[in-house]
Amino acid sequence: MLQYSLRRLLIGAGMLLALSMLIFVMLRLTPGDPIDAYIDPNVPMSPSDLVELRDTLGLDAPLPVQYLAWLQQAVMGNLGYSIKRPDQPVLSLVFSRIGPTVLLMGSAIVISIIAGIASGMISAVRRNSVVDLSFSLFAVTGISSPPFLSALVGLYLFSVYFDWLPSGGMLTPGRDFSIADLLHHLILPAALLAVAQTALIMRYMRSSMLEVLNQDYVRTARAKGVYEFWVITKHALRNALLPVVTLIGSTIGLAIGGAIFIESVFNWPGMGLLMVDAVENRDYPVIMGSTLVIGACVIFVNILTDLAYAVIDPRIKVG
């Protein structure tokens, strides 16, 4: 297990390095000159001042040299400073936004796992029933709806039309912090972020559960008179979970993509909103730093997902 974990960490480090190279090159290929982001349009600058500024920032060096210089600082924990907020290190900005994003994504993932597994089990046990058809309709709708559409529809229905939940923010302005107020603001964006993941997990769980329910050991358990609840939960569920665990690990990336839209719509002060602001302002250091941290988190979660296989199914051996 230790050797496998170390090998997966090395592979993850290589993937993170490749991701940083890809983002660095893509940002440099975007239209416009990176130096424009550092210049105040209201302050005139002479050509010699531009040359000096470009030399100071290292933008006159070849692209590989610029990347290696940035990578050397990133390995030491220095991701640079924000262009629009020069007094703010990128790492501090990222860390200040990680908490709200982890809270939002963690809540959405917990909702999607519980709701997806439960509805998938019920749908498989009640195959071709009205309940099964209702869950299937929800799954098709959830998978087909992009996150920004779900966010806008949910915002209109629950915040504007019914006025049940807040339309944005993480806390009520001017009110003392309370868990109840935080949960009141969290429930809608977390539930909307969980829609697509819940639909995917439900479909996988239903398919896997149907396959397991047709196995000989399940029929044997029923023939021995084992109570149906224990047949489903003890004999069938654990074996049906393995492919679902794979999906749960892969939905982390889907949740990050959805969080960018959800945080923008609900003005949630997390990593997604930070990245949107950075892209709008062409804040290259913040874009690079945010992407690197998010990529590291996704890779780490995928490694944990791989290691979870052996815990769920002892028949699997890592090597």
Rank of each mutant, 00 (worst) to 15 (best):
M1D: 12
L2F: 11
Y4W: 08
S5H: 03
L6R: 13
L9I: 13
L10S: 14
G12Q: 00
L17F: 14
A18I: 11
L27E: 08
Y38I: 00
P47L: 09
T56G: 11
V65W: 11
Q66A: 02
Q73G: 01
A74L: 10
V75R: 06
M76G: 12
G77H: 12
R85S: 14
R85T: 12
Q88A: 12
V90I: 06
S92Y: 14
L93I: 01
R97V: 01
T101D: 05
L104N: 09
M105W: 03
A108E: 00
I113L: 07
V131K: 14
D132K: 13
S134R: 09
F135N: 07
S144K: 12
F148V: 02
L149A: 11
L149P: 04
S159L: 08
W164S: 07
P173Y: 02
F177Q: 03
I179R: 08
L182E: 10
L192R: 13
Q197E: 09
M202T: 03
M202G: 08
R203D: 05
V212P: 15
V212W: 15
V212K: 14
T220I: 11
I232P: 11
T233Q: 00
L242V: 03
A255R: 02
I262R: 09
M275W: 02
V286P: 12
M288L: 10
G289T: 06
I294Y: 03
L304S: 15
L304C: 15
L307G: 01
